[in-house]
Design a protein around this nucleic acid. Structure first.
Lengths: 354, 354
DNA sequence: ATTAGCACTTTGCGTTATCGAGTGCTAAAC
DNA sequence: GTTTAGCACTCGATAACGCAAAGTGCTAAT
């Protein structure tokens, strides 16, 4: 880190107390207030001097000459990195979080959605959830299932082990044997190919392979295409945006607009997530040059499976955020989600005993 | 209707011109402005008299004594029902709309999402899309597909003809015969039952039926449960909320908060959609007693298949909305979507991972 | 090195005055 | 009888002013 090393213990204590106070009541904090509320063993004059130095070091800012101090971006940065005290979840909160975990939803999106709702309701900040684009999604195996002479199911086991199914109503009569043949043709020609490789000649070859049943190919190919490309885009979702309005910093619509500009920055956020180490909760303090707007912050936890990012969840809010609490909750829920997606088969089989 | 019948043609013309003007520039409209801009053949004094009457009839309101008039809720109501002129889409707009239609996405959710993005970008209002809860979703047929000795796919054809699939990793070795047996047990015991009917005794009976393979039942049942309940909730999504900030009425956060309270009124909106005739675009002018907040409006078009509501799409915004344009666009897109879902060549609405 | 005391600065707020837009009303004109 | 011109009136918006409160920075004393 290095940042903040030059600070004396007293400066750190003052900075911490000041930011805590500011987070709590939202107003600039003055020297008098600090002396009365916290027991740093010195008078307001001393604190004034210290604050003045903290300001010239870049950790604090003064809205105007005769106001108290407010944390700067660097101040918040140092606070979240080294200063803030871990929040320990109350038993009431733990209970709520565990309730959600007990629901044991099997699909990542649903899990993220449920977690998002929970975090939003518990913190009063909107949740952001990210699902990165599934790059190079390919079908590793086709299966057909006969339903009746006009209907069958096409199941595709994708390279990421998910299954996609399509119910297909056929124009011509089919039977199990024809479906097996179709399945074979698909497996021979399409598996292990990315969607751009499905060329017209290839399609024609498959139609030829199907002989008099060539009509089956075209609707099926359409489904395959659809399935391969459906996740391609990646998703960025916000839940509970309305909660922002309860925070006083957003009574100025301009602030709100700046923060919500995030909603249009899908690509940038995907990048952030992609680059994230994933080991820990990341805190982005907004400001110039950053994806997150001035006066805003984003807290994100990404999930990796086999070293690949498969999703992320977190909250957005004003820079003046209850970091300790939010971090604790995101961390806890993330741990639950991680353990669920890390070893899914165990989960599936274990669910009997609860 | 009846409402507005007592209005002379001149009153109607004045009301229409006034609302048009107000929608355009957002400010209270005075008599002078009306005479100069529109050619109703009379002077400002006459218009003043007419406006005064329109006000006492409830169609107009005066923010304060010395301001122009503003449409009341009833005024807007009458305007959208009878007064406003149809907006004809420009060729540029039609082109954009058709582009989207050409993409021909097969799944309703995806289609709604794409349509929503388009409407939002073309109108600058947020889109709302609704998917009602799938009531009494039951499995009408189970199919199993063998992958290898440790893995198989469970496909469920639901009562609404959609297919859901789950990829299951088994703790014990399986083969096609065992899977067929599992499939039979499931079909015998679960099909045509709603999820609440899947009781513990039933599960135990199925485990008994499976003999030494009873361990398979529990993970499978969990998937079944999951599938039956996954759509149960219904969905209410908002896209492009940030667009609201560009409209001056929302520089007062209070207005924004009121409008966005919709985001928490899932049930009420579902109700509205459920009760909607579905024949036409519905315009909800907000106000007391209504789900939609004061000063806000919602435009919705619902889709029915076989007389059952399967979804809805529309926009929300300030009461001062460009109704003609928005209605035209929603109507057009809705027509496209309807025709696509009415005759689905390939019917697929849900797969295991999206 | 710390602190008490004080002058200084700046915001917020309430008061007042002025301006302008738009109405309602009355009396004249069509 | 309907329409119109003219005018007094009302009310919000804006700016100017002064005052009080909060908080600082600095100086001098501890």
């Amino acid at each position: 880190m290095g940042i903040g090393d030059e600070l004396s213990e007293r400066k750190k204590a003052i900075l911490r107390a000041l930011i805590d106070a500011h987070i709590e009541n939202g107003e600039p904090v003055g020297s008098k207030y600090l002396t009365s509320m916290c027991d740093i063993g010195c008078s307001s004059a001393t604190i004034r001097n210290e604050m003045s130095e903290l300001e010239s070091m870049g950790y604090l800012e003064q809205p105007h000459t005769s106001a108290g101090r407010v944390p700067s971006k660097a101040g918040y940065r140092f606070y979240v990195d080294s200063l803030m005290q871990a929040y320990s979840l109350t038993s009431r909160e733990l209970e709520e979080l565990n309730n959600m975990q007990r629901a044991r939803i099997s699909q990542l999106d649903k899990m993220l959605k449920a977690a998002g709702k929970l975090i939003t309701s518990m913190t009063n900040y909107p949740t952001v959830s990210v699902k990165p684009k599934a790059t190079n999604l390919i079908v590793s195996c086709f299966k057909t299932t006969y339903v009746d002479s006009r209907n069958f199911i096409l199941s595709m086991i994708m390279s990421d082990k998910t299954v996609k199914s399509r119910y297909i109503q056929s124009k011509i009569e089919v039977d199990e044997e024809i479906l097996n043949r179709l399945c074979g043709v698909l497996n021979n020609n399409i598996t292990h190919r990315v969607s751009s490789e499905i060329s017209l000649p290839l399609i024609m070859k498959m139609e030829a392979d199907m002989g008099m049943y060539d009509m089956l190919i075209s609707p099926v190919i359409k489904c395959v295409y659809d399935a391969m490309n459906s996740d391609d885009e990646g998703e960025l979702k916000f839940e509970g945006v309305e909660k922002l309005l309860e925070h006083p910093e957003f009574s100025d619509v301009e602030n709100l607009r700046k923060l919500l500009s995030l909603m249009d920055k899908k690509e940038e956020i995907m990048d952030l997530v992609e680059k994230d180490s994933g080991n820990d909760v990341s805190i982005y303090i907004g400001g110039e040059g950053s994806t997150v707007a001035e006066n805003s912050s984003m807290i994100l936890k990404t999930f990796k499976v086999n070293g690949k990012v498969v999703g992320a969840i977190g909250v957005i809010g004003p820079q003046r955020m209850e970091y300790p609490k939010v971090v604790a909750m995101v961390e806890y829920l993330a741990k639950c989600i991680s353990s669920t997606i890390q070893n899914p088969e165990i989960k599936e089989l274990k669910s009997s005993d609860d």
